[in-house]
Simulated scan of single mutants.
Amino acid sequence: MTPEQIQQIEAGAFRRLLKHLDNNKDVQNIDLMIVADFCRNCLSKWYMAEAKEIGVDIDYDAAREAVYGMPYSEWKANHQAEATPEQMAAFEARQAAGKSS
C-alpha cells in the first residue's frame, strides 16, 4: 500500500468510529474509559494534537464538536447521564491499575 492509501484507510476507519459512537450515544464516556481507557474527549484531544502536528490550529471546543457531531454542551445536555457510584468505582479502579503498571 502507498502512504496515501494508508492515510485514506485510517481516515475512513476514524470516520466509521465517529459514526459508530454517534449511533451509540447511550454508551457513556465513563463506560468507554472503564472498558477501553479512552473516551470521546480523548479522541477530541488526539484530533486537536494531530491538527497541530500538521500546522492547523484548532481549539478543544472545535475538536470536540468534530468528534461529538455537535457542540459538547448540547451533547452533554441531551445524552450524558450522571455517573453512578458503581461506574465511578470501576473508573477509579481502572485508573489505579493503570498507574501501577
Rank of each mutant, 00 (worst) to 15 (best):
F38I: 04
H79V: 11
Q8H: 10
Y47H: 00
A77E: 10
I58K: 06
E4Y: 02
N41L: 01
S73N: 15
I58M: 14
N23M: 10
V67F: 02
I30V: 09
R40L: 04
A83Q: 05
Q5R: 00
W46F: 04
E50F: 02
P3E: 04
L21F: 05
A63R: 01
K19T: 12
M33Q: 00
P3T: 09
Q7D: 00
L32F: 01
Q87V: 15
I9Y: 07
E53T: 12
I9E: 07
G69C: 07
L18I: 12
K52R: 00
G55K: 01
N78E: 08
N41C: 02
T84G: 15
N24Y: 05
I34C: 06
G12C: 03
T84N: 06
Q5K: 04
E74C: 14
R16I: 09
V35I: 13
Y72P: 11
R64D: 14
D37A: 09
V35A: 06
N78T: 09
I30C: 06
P3M: 03
Y68H: 09
A36V: 05
E4V: 04
D22S: 11
A83G: 09
I54K: 12
A51I: 02
W46N: 05
M48S: 05
P71S: 07
I34T: 01
E53I: 12
D37C: 13
V27K: 00
E53R: 13
M33S: 09
C42G: 00
Q8S: 14
A11Y: 06
A66L: 10
D37V: 08
E10N: 10
D61K: 11
P3G: 05
Q7E: 11
Q87L: 09
G55N: 01
I6A: 01
M88E: 10
E10L: 12
E82Y: 12
Q8R: 13
Q87A: 11
F38P: 02
N23G: 07
D61E: 15
T2K: 07
N41D: 06
A49K: 07
I30Q: 04
A63S: 15
E50Q: 09
K19H: 09
Q87G: 11
E53F: 07
D31A: 12
A49Q: 07
R15M: 05
R15C: 07
M70F: 05
N23R: 08
